[in-house]
Nucleic acid binder design. Structure first.
Lengths: 257, 257
DNA sequence: TCAAAAGTGTTACGTGTACACCCATGG
DNA sequence: CCATGGGTGTACACGTAACACTTTTGA
């Protein structure tokens, strides 16, 4: 907050400042079935890991076309210009990389060690993380020098971007228990299984289906649409939607009778 | 992370960037052993509020000597110059305001809305919060244009610094359950009552003494020194110290026998 | 009729909280 | 002796995890 500095004399240039964004989206294993990128169908252990159709998280990276770290992959970014808010710059980077607007956007951390980039150029980078909806994500056509990678199989990254991604995943795991970020990743309507698969993808562990059902319904953030979705040779699942906060009529215990 | 920007052409000046620090310290009611200050024993409801000598948190503010917000109080700050890490700049601001080094320092958030300062100068401010030990804090002699305020009785603040302080307190309340920040505020050796008073000051509520004792000891972060401290006409209290992580011999359940 | 996922019910367990009670000390 | 805070024991509420069990569908 610069208590005493003369702006007119720029004897000491301030460091350059930019935005980096960790963008997360689900790959779409079953929606609109067709053009799913990377159909390796890894693992498929039948009983233990009962993630029958657990989607995986993917993240878009940009190949660097100049030094430093030429040729390596980096987080999408944008310089910060006057008159832009930090969120504006993060959205810019997101749109120019993916073509979409974020369903969720939150600041992560400001990275500023002078030695973090191998070159000498001083740089402060303010990192954000963002979520893209599944519908949008299913329509990505990869631009040159942009590629979507599964979160568990990343290439070598420029700068300290691997650290930033780790931090973003940590934050996502913190948030998914109390926020509605899972509903930002799936579509507007979803079964509890689909929602659970999202939680499992973020947490990278299996969840007990009955307990997940109870806890997620008790949170009161979602409500049934009345529709059902038949997905296989088993009982069809009810569809749910995100319930706008404060507008849920079916709460438990607050209404007097 | 500025993917494509020509540093040599500075057609668009990047915004100015600075550091703000929320510095917290305990006022020292009883250190230097003898005369326990503030023996008012307020309330003295026998069982209810037994916060006999709860210390209060204090924060140093700097009076602004120029526009905008001339005359109001603001967080200590520092511009960020080349070659400095963000932590360096935060420490600089802390030292130049208080004369001490921090016992704890953590980044809070980067504030960057262009309209947040009432003037038009664009500014990104990276906020930190820091803790000062009780011994150091007891030796402060207030510098001109610097004053320590109790956290619950702050003056009108410049910029959005009230928001930043709220955010710092929120973060402190999050951390005090899992981190050792309470031991950074008190001296090297302390009784469980003193440590509990710190927790109560941060959380702004009373804690049950027996339960606090059990939970804090179960966490394994502190260990008894073997000494006791007589503080009044009652049973003396054991003194404890911070236990270096991994070096605590008296854990429960991990050693085989 | 059978496999598989949807959905319900119940129990076990750890954690936090409240509170009764004993201990040690100075006045 | 007694008020006061240090320190121990214990019971209860509550949220989470685990798992047995029923329901509903397609093959």
């Amino acid at each position: 907050m610069r208590i005493s500095a003369n702006v007119s004399e720029r004897a000491m240039e301030p460091p350059d400042i930019g935005i980096s964004v960790v963008i997360l989206a689900l790959d779409s294993p079953d929606t609109s079935g067709v053009g799913v990128v990377g159909e390796t169908n890894e693992g498929q252990g039948k009983g233990k890991n009962k993630s029958g159709a657990r989607p995986t998280l993917r993240i878009p990276l940009v190949r660097r076309v100049r030094e430093p770290f030429l040729g390596l992959w980096a987080l999408p970014g944008s310089p910060l210009r006057q008159g832009m808010s930090l969120e504006d710059a993060a959205c810019d980077a997101l749109r120019s990389t993916t073509g979409f607007d974020p369903r969720y956007l939150e600041q992560l951390y400001a990275f500023g060690d002078p030695g973090r980039s191998s070159s000498a150029l001083p740089m402060v980078s303010i990192a954000y993380w963002a979520l893209i909806g599944q519908e949008e994500a299913s329509h990505v056509h990869e631009a040159p020098n942009v590629r979507w990678f599964p979160i568990n199989d990343l290439p070598r990254l420029a700068f300290d971007h691997d650290r930033i991604i780790d931090y973003a995943m940590e934050r996502a795991r913190e948030r998914i228990g109390t926020s509605d970020i899972a509903t930002r990743l799936v579509g507007e309507r979803f079964t509890l299984s689909q929602l659970r698969h999202v939680h499992e993808a973020v947490l990278d562990r299996s969840l007990n289906p009955p307990n997940f059902r109870r806890s997620i319904l008790a949170a009161g953030m979602i409500e049934p649409t009345g529709e059902v979705l038949a997905q296989g040779r088993h009982r069809p699942a009810s569809l749910y939607r995100y319930a706008a906060p404060g507008a849920s009529p079916s709460r438990h215990g607050k209404q007097h009778a």
